[in-house]
Amino acid sequence: MGQVWMPDIDKTMTGGAWRFEGTLDVDWELCPYQASKAFGKESARKLTYIERMEALKMLALQPLDPDFHKKVQRGDFLIGDDRTGYGHDHEHACIALRGAGIGTVLCEGTNVNFRRNSIHHGLPVVVVKGIMSAAKTGDTLEVNLVEGWVKNLTSSKTLTFKPWPEFVLDIIRKGGLYPWLREETPATNQSAVA
C-alpha cells in the first residue's frame, strides 16, 4: 500500500468526531459520483491507488461541507446516522474517506455493500447504536475496535459494539483486501474459514 496512513487498530485510537445527520449516500454526500469520475477509470491518466486516494479526499463529504477535507485530521472519526453509506456499492467513497484520514466510521446503521467495500479498502466501519446522540462534531473520542467500545472523552459516555471477527480485523490491519491477499498464508486462510 506504499505510504498510505492506516489506523493502528490494535491500540485504543483517539480522534475528533465529525457528525453528519441524514442520508450519507456513497454517490452524493460521501463523495459525489460524477465529480469522482475525473479521478477514476476514465481519467486522462491512470492514477495509482494512492494518487486516487489523495484526489478523492477533496470530495469527501463535499456536498455537506466543502471544506471538510481541510478541517479533518488524520485519525478522526465519522459519525453517521442509520443511512451511512447508502445506495450503490460504488467504493470510491471508501477511498475518499480513507484519503481524508478517517480512522473509523461509527454509525447507527449501514448496509452490507458499504461495510464490506470499506473493510476491503482498509477502512473500519462499525454500527454503534446510540452514537448519534452520544457524540457531536468537535468531541474527542476513544475507539477500541478489538474490544468493541467507544468512549466520548468530552462527555464521558461509553458505548459498546460487537467487534469484527479476527480475520476481518486482519484485513483492516493489512490495509485492505488486496494487500491481505498478497500476504495471506494458507494457515491464516484456514483459520479464517468457518
Binding site: 456499492d89 467504493e91 455493500n113 464490506r116 467495500n117 476491503h120 483486501l177 491477499l181
Partner: peptide, 8 residues
C-alpha cells in the same frame, strides 16, 4: 455483488 471484494 462482490464489488471490491471480488479478488478473494
Amino acid at each position: 455483488a462482490l464489488s471490491y471484494g471480488a479478488a478473494e
